[in-house]
Design a protein around this nucleic acid. Structure first.
Lengths: 128, 128
DNA sequence: CGGTATCCGTAGGGATACTG
DNA sequence: CAGTATCCCTACGGATACCG
């Protein structure tokens, strides 16, 4: 019971700033990395993502994946087999964020460079 | 005393991912808004920023401004007069982030749109 | 294999009042 | 005018163990 409103549906989220919306969606600890991986590999199983992003604990990885799914950026496909098999992939909406990530990557790179810092990250430059 | 290392200077920050770097720099609650305002108005006093961003408490506004200054994105010019006068403006480095914010704005807009949500934010579309 | 459950610490952010 | 100073809270993220 959050009691956000007493009438049925005159409620809208308070944050409706485009830039903040973008930050809220991809600002989570491993979200940009997950999206990046899915852009280059298109389909990854949970266990593969775990290997690609070893710093994320299972709880964190699952949480970030669920939030990306809720945001409509990724699709979770469950195969009813045993042992379980789950594949993650980008939705069309998820693919549409590519230019944003590329712009952020480019600027962040420039930023690290100007501080004499080497990039240390498993993101490989996105082609096209 | 953080004791981050025992030798003199073999220490480097752990996060050196370009995308995370960008998020860390502009991800603060009011940072993108501050940058946006300074892009359109080029110079703003503290009191003007307070009016432009009324939701930010003085503590938060000051904190975000200091962090942006530390990151090298904005310049803080103090006039030694009484009453005090302080002007904030973008550095060249700060100006360089414009394409990133524009990409985020555009995508965020698209995102809100697809959910039938109206933009409710004091950011006005950036020209050029 | 692909997750939950539980517990916990910290940092980011907020409210309010005060000051050189 | 342009900030500090305090106090407070909770949401994010992490460690570890367990489950269908």
């Amino acid at each position: 019971m959050k009691n956000k409103s007493n009438s049925n549906e005159d409620y809208k989220p308070t944050i409706r700033c485009p830039v903040e919306t973008t930050i809220n969606i991809i600002g989570g600890k491993y979200k940009s990395l997950i999206l990046w991986k899915l852009m280059t590999t298109k389909t990854l199983r949970y266990s593969q993502l775990r290997k690609e992003i070893p710093n994320a604990t299972p709880k964190m990885l699952t949480q970030q994946l669920r939030e990306l799914e809720t945001s409509g950026l990724i699709h979770r496909r469950v195969f009813p087999v045993v042992p379980p098999k789950v594949e993650y992939s980008l939705t069309d909406f998820g693919k549409s964020i590519k230019p944003v990530l590329k712009a952020m990557y480019k600027w962040g790179n420039h930023c690290l460079d100007s501080q004499g810092l080497e990039v240390n990250c498993s993101m490989v430059e996105l082609t096209n």
